[in-house]
Write a protein that binds this DNA or RNA. Sequence first.
DNA 1: GAGTCTTATTTTACAGTGTAAGAGTCGGCT
DNA 2: AGCCGACTCTTACACTGTAAAATAAGACTC
Lengths: 200, 200
Amino acid sequence: MARRKVELSPERIRTVALELIDRHGLDAFSTRKLGIALGCEAMAIYWYYRSKEDLLDAVVDELVVSIARVVDEASTDWVGTLRAVAHAYRKLAHDHPRAFPLLATRRFSSASTFAFLEKLFGLARAQGISDRTSAQFYRVVSSYCSGFALNELAPQPTSLAHLKKFPAVAHVSKWLGEDQLDGIFEFGLELQLDALRASR
Amino acid sequence: MARRKVELSPERIRTVALELIDRHGLDAFSTRKLGIALGCEAMAIYWYYRSKEDLLDAVVDELVVSIARVVDEASTDWVGTLRAVAHAYRKLAHDHPRAFPLLATRRFSSASTFAFLEKLFGLARAQGISDRTSAQFYRVVSSYCSGFALNELAPQPTSLAHLKKFPAVAHVSKWLGEDQLDGIFEFGLELQLDALRASR
DNA sequence: GAGTCTTATTTTACAGTGTAAGAGTCGGCT
DNA sequence: AGCCGACTCTTACACTGTAAAATAAGACTC
């Protein structure tokens, strides 16, 4: 048997898992298919992860870390940092559209998530922003980003048949199209960041 | 055999489906268990719905309709209507915490969704709000509500072990607790509605 | 009332799922 | 050489969604 050749590891497993989800979607993802992609039997995965749920948590973690990196590279200005995080979050949804719902649905209380929050809130405190304010705006902005990204990933095909029966929607639909998404996201985000600036 | 006695119907099926999801969660929901709850075989469901996905779409629809009703009862003021819808949306998440992720994840382009949007946008037009503005604020506010509700449904248990290692998070965590959710939701919502009022 | 058609439901079957339990195989240790 | 612990595979089980066909009951025609 060709054992010990594929060199399984937690990192490789979750990386290949993400690749598989990206390529074929969450529904099609199974431990058996992951095994094939890794070159091992499905059960070998269970040495590194207690369950499929555990593995998916690890995949989410990998994605969170990629956002956390943005905080390091950001300027010292907290508003700017929050903006950068918001954009990174949305970019993540575009880069991994089929994995993103995982991130939006799942509770994440892993160490790397905390490390991310620590950097973000540490920066806020260093700039004299009150804990209450930073907590408020973090929740508001992150909720907005999460919801917005999720919405744009599940786009309705603007059924023309329906539009005939719903004239008001027909009129407004011009401003609901995909070409408007960037602008509206920016609009809503800046609206919130303006309020943050004003609150100081 | 006791046929034709249980009186199956699309409405009953999707209602019992929602009950089952509410009680035991999405993961535990299966066509077989639904069959047992309905008093029929699993395959009988397929006479009324083409697939499990189809059925879940119908469940989502049922939930959307319950929100649409709010628009009828609302005052003529569009800002007030949008606020009422936002609150109804969050209330839905509290009333059906285990079904809500369906609503947030799934594309809904059903007739009842369009009927809802028609009422909402029709009201906006009647009050002279530009199509662009109503589209913008609808997307922003609905994204915010969706993301906020999803976040509060997946609460992290504020791991005390982690808090020792992350002092900034520990300080801020006071404002991130469940007791703050109502206030923060309101804060973020009004922040957006203020901007809507100001834009006129 | 007998025969046929339509609608509703069950039966049977299949390929696929997550994972528990145990068996097997290897490298490195004494 | 023998053993141990770290890995991996094999087997098995209960459960999933649903295609295909069998079946039953009412409605409709003659």
